Amino acid sequence: MNVHKLIKSFGYALNGIVSAMKEQNMRIHIFSAFIVVIAGLVTGLSHLEWLALVIIIALVIGAEMMNTAIESVVDLASPEIHPLAKRAKDVAAGAVLVFALASVIIGLLIFLPKWF
């Protein structure tokens, strides 16, 4: 195993996270996750509830990062407006929306019974 290559690959991944944080939607997802974690700490969630929240937070953030990557590649490959480029970007954004809506539903299923 080449430790130097491994360390460099982690550096590239961290650069990707930092780059994604420049996107407005990513900052919204991170802020929402922060609020959910605070609410979870105040509410006193079970291990299983934390597991569900951590998984869905990771899925939403990961999907947003993939969306950003797809948008960047599409913009590089097709700087001009093209129907297929638009479709690729719209579908990637739609995938993020599906995960985000699922996260809201999961959050409601976890928090509402504890609060009301």
Rank of each mutant, 00 (worst) to 15 (best):
W50S: 00
L97D: 08
A88L: 14
A100K: 12
L45E: 00
V42C: 05
A93W: 05
A69Y: 10
T43D: 08
A85S: 13
I81S: 15
A95F: 07
F99R: 01
I106L: 06
A52I: 13
A100H: 07
I105L: 13
A100C: 04
L108F: 13
L45S: 02
S103I: 01
V74Y: 06
V91M: 04
I81A: 15
I57H: 01
L45C: 03
V54Q: 02
K86A: 11
I70R: 02
M66I: 11
G107N: 05
H47K: 13
G107C: 04
V91L: 06
V98E: 08
S72W: 11
A102N: 10
L45I: 03
V98Q: 04
L76F: 15
I81P: 09
I105K: 13
P83S: 11
A88P: 09
S46T: 05
D75F: 08
G62S: 03
L45A: 03
N67T: 11
D90C: 10
I70D: 10
I106R: 00
N67H: 13
A52G: 10
S78P: 09
A58C: 14
I106M: 09
I55N: 06
I56R: 00
S103G: 11
G62P: 01
V98I: 09
G94R: 02
I70E: 06
E64K: 04
L59N: 06
L97P: 06
G94Q: 11
L51I: 01
I61P: 01
A92E: 01
A92V: 04
G94K: 08
G44M: 02
L76K: 14
F99C: 06
R87N: 09
I61F: 08
G94D: 08
